[in-house]
Computed example of a mutant assay.
Amino acid sequence: MENAVLLNAIIENAIDGIITIDDRGLVESINPAACSLFGYTPGEVIGKNISFLMPPPDRTHHDEYIQRYQHTGVPHIIGIGREVKGLRKDGSVFPFMLGVSEVTLSGRKIYAGFIHDLSQQKRAEEQLKDYATHLEEIVDERTFSLQESVEALQNAKEEVSLSLEKEKELSQLKSRFVSMASHEFRTPLSAIQLSASLIDKYAQPFKSEHIAKHVGKIKNAVGNLTTILNDFLSLEKLEAGRVEPSFAPFDLVKLSEEITEEMQMVAKQNQHIIYQHTGKESVVTLDQNLLKNCIFNLIANAIKYSGENTFIEFNTEITGNAITIVVKDNGIGIPEKDQKHLFEPFFRAHNTGSIPGTGLGLNIVARYTHLMNGSVDFKSIVNQGTSFTILFKRHE
C-alpha cells in the first residue's frame, strides 16, 4: 500500500507528462504534467483514444498501428528517443520526446508513455538558426567591406607606382599613407579580430558549421590586411632609414625549429615543411628579428605559391666561412621575363593570378639581408618550383 502511494505521488508530481493506454489505444490515466501540456482535464482525456491528442497525419496512422499490434503482438514503438508532435486542446501543435514502456498488470498489457516537452528547445534552435543566418549576413557584409579595403589598398599601390615621378614625392605620399593606415586600419582590425575570436568562443557550444566557416573568413581577411599593413610599415621604416641591425649571438637551429613549427600551423592541407640543419655549430651572430622576418617571408611565399600535398624544404648550414639558409618549394615558379624585377617594390610576377600579396615581401627580404651584410639569390622554373638562398660570409 505504501509503495502504491509513493508511486502515485511520483507520477502526480513528475515534471514530464505520463499517459497510460490499453492495447486498444484508450487512455487509462494521465498525470497533471501531461494535462498541462495538452490543456485538458483528466476527465476530458480518460477513456478516449490516444489518437485525439495527435495532429494529422499521425492521428490517421494510429489505428493502423493498433490493428498491426493486435495481429502481430508487436507494438509500433517501444523505447526512448522518438520525437513526435502533440495536439493541444486549443489546436496548437507542439514537439515532444516520447518514450514508451510496456507493462504487464493483472494479466493484461498496459503502455506507459513518457512525454518530455521540446517546445523550449525548439524555440532555442530556431533562435540559433536565426542568429546564424543573421551572423552570416554580418560576416558577408564585413567580408565584402574587407575585400573593398584590400582592393582600395591595391589600387593605391598601383596609383603610387604609376603616378609618382620623384622619390621625394613618393616618400611623402607613403608617409601619409602609413600614418593613415596605422591609425585608421589597425584599431578596427584589432576589434574585428577580437570580435571574431569571441564569436568563435561563444559559438562553440552550438557546434554550427556556418558560424565556424564565416568566422574563419573574417580571420583570414583580417590576416591578409594585417600582412599588407606590416609590409607597408616595414617598407616605410626602411626608406626612412629607421632600421638599424642589432647583431647578437643566438641559436640558429632553435630559431629555425620555432619558425618551422609556427609556419606549419598556417600551411595548406597536407603541406609539410621539412627542416634540416648541416654543420656542428648552431650559434650565429646576426640580427635575430630581421633574419626571422626574412625566413618568415620566404616560407610564407612557398606556402602561398605551392599547392596542397606538397613539401617545402627549409635548410640551414653553418661552415667555417659561411651561413647559408635555403627555402625551396615545387610551386608555380617565376616566369623568366619577370625574374629581373623580382626584388623591386610592389612587383608581382604575372602568373600569381588571384593569389593575394603586396609585392613587397621579397624587397623587404633583400633589404634586411643587405643590412646584415648578406646576399639573397634564387633559382626558379615555371611549374617546377623556386629556391631562395640567403648567404652570410663569416669573418674570423
Rank of each mutant, 00 (worst) to 15 (best):
F96Y: 13
S182Q: 15
A267N: 07
D338L: 01
N330C: 09
N230I: 04
F177E: 10
S171E: 08
D16K: 04
T316H: 02
L371M: 07
E336W: 03
E148N: 14
H370A: 14
T104G: 06
R176N: 10
T319C: 08
F343T: 02
G39Y: 01
V93L: 14
N321P: 02
L238E: 08
K254P: 06
E151H: 14
K201G: 09
N3E: 13
V74Q: 00
M97A: 14
G86L: 01
S208M: 11
S282W: 07
I218T: 13
D22N: 04
G86T: 07
F314V: 07
S149F: 13
T41L: 10
E258D: 13
N309V: 12
I18T: 03
A9H: 13
I66C: 01
A14L: 09
C35L: 05
Y305A: 05
S29H: 02
I355H: 07
A152K: 13
Q269W: 12
L255D: 07
P245S: 04
K254F: 13
E317D: 13
K337M: 05
E2S: 09
T187S: 15
G385P: 06
A181L: 07
A267Y: 06
Q67T: 05
D22F: 02
Q288F: 12
L37D: 00
G385I: 03
H395V: 13
F232Y: 10
R88W: 01
E148D: 09
M97P: 08
S51Q: 05
R68C: 01
V253P: 04
A9N: 15
D200T: 09
L146S: 14
V283Y: 11
G307N: 11
S354V: 11
T358A: 07
K122S: 03
E344D: 08
V93G: 11
H61N: 05
F247L: 12
E64R: 03
A366L: 08
E184R: 15
D22M: 03
E28F: 02
M265Y: 14
R176C: 12
T324M: 12
A112N: 00
Q172S: 11
Y40Q: 04
N293H: 11
F378E: 00
E244I: 08
